[in-house]
Design a protein around this nucleic acid. Structure first.
Lengths: 142, 142
DNA sequence: TCGCCAGTGTTACTAAATAACGTATCGGAA
DNA sequence: TTCCGATACGTTATTTAGTAACACTGGCGA
């Protein structure tokens, strides 16, 4: 993610927290910065490592709590198939993201598709959808 | 999954292995039986536990190897968001499944939707898609 | 009969995530 | 001001998930 996108997302996060009466504490902000600045999806334990030279004593719950918080605000998405996390620059109120993940360069594109699939079982009420496409992005198919 | 579905799936597995020159060994068959007979998605370590009274000394690689084999044949799918596995009674040659998972009763419905989403980034070539919908099935919304 | 190879056994380890509980800080009510 | 409750964070320990690496075996073809 580019620097400008990243800082925009940070500002958006500040605003979002203000609106909702949530606190973007230093740890949370730092984790968000790291996720946004990371090249591709990032593992929780890599975040932990990145966090530690500065924070010193961060342990798994620290980073998982921050990630949970950020996911709650929709600022970070989890890539379930990778056990990894990606930053999100979209302003999406509701609804899940549809992720396109390049297996070569690791970049993740996010789209917001139609919430309801055409072929759901009758009467099935969807709460949350996980949609992750793995393949090769435009740059990597050349 | 009902008993008849389960035994049909087992027969289909036998046939499929025959066709492909693969061997449905006792362990693989037993794991498939367990997955098919399980009530909802099953965790690898639960399979391991279920396996052990009989096999005695099964260890993680045993069950993961069997699951990998069965997934390769499309007889089992992994639910990425749950780190769990479900049996598959469909005969689908290619293409990923779309799963509808009831958070109440745990049942999983499998559909095979349109392979290509309408809103993929330009030039993105999809290899594999993970599509998992969580919610409430018809029976559990009443 | 030899040697390969797929399948399995086994040990050990890495990675991912959470439970449970203690501590600090801050803002509002008494 | 003091106390209280809530929220966030620190810390220890444990559980859950998955894999690497190597040894062994039994069948099958040369």
């Amino acid at each position: 993610m580019s620097r400008s996108q990243s800082s925009q997302a940070l500002e958006a996060a500040e605003r979002l927290c203000q609106e909702r009466g949530e606190r973007l504490t230093p740890i949370r902000k730092r984790v968000l910065e790291l996720v946004l600045g990371w090249d591709g999806p990032v593992k929780a334990y890599d975040l932990l490592e990145a966090l530690n030279p500065e924070a010193g004593t961060a342990k798994p719950p620290t980073v998982y709590r921050a990630l949970d918080f950020l996911m709650g605000l929709g600022l970070v998405h989890k890539v379930e198939a990778l056990n990894a996390f990606v930053g999100c620059t979209h302003s999406h109120d509701e609804g899940g993201a549809e992720l396109f993940i390049c297996s070569d360069c690791g970049t993740v594109e996010e789209r917001h598709g139609s919430a309801t699939p055409t072929n759901a079982p009758e009467g099935f009420k969807i709460d949350r959808s996980v949609i992750e496409h793995f393949g090769h992005c435009r740059n990597c198919t050349h």
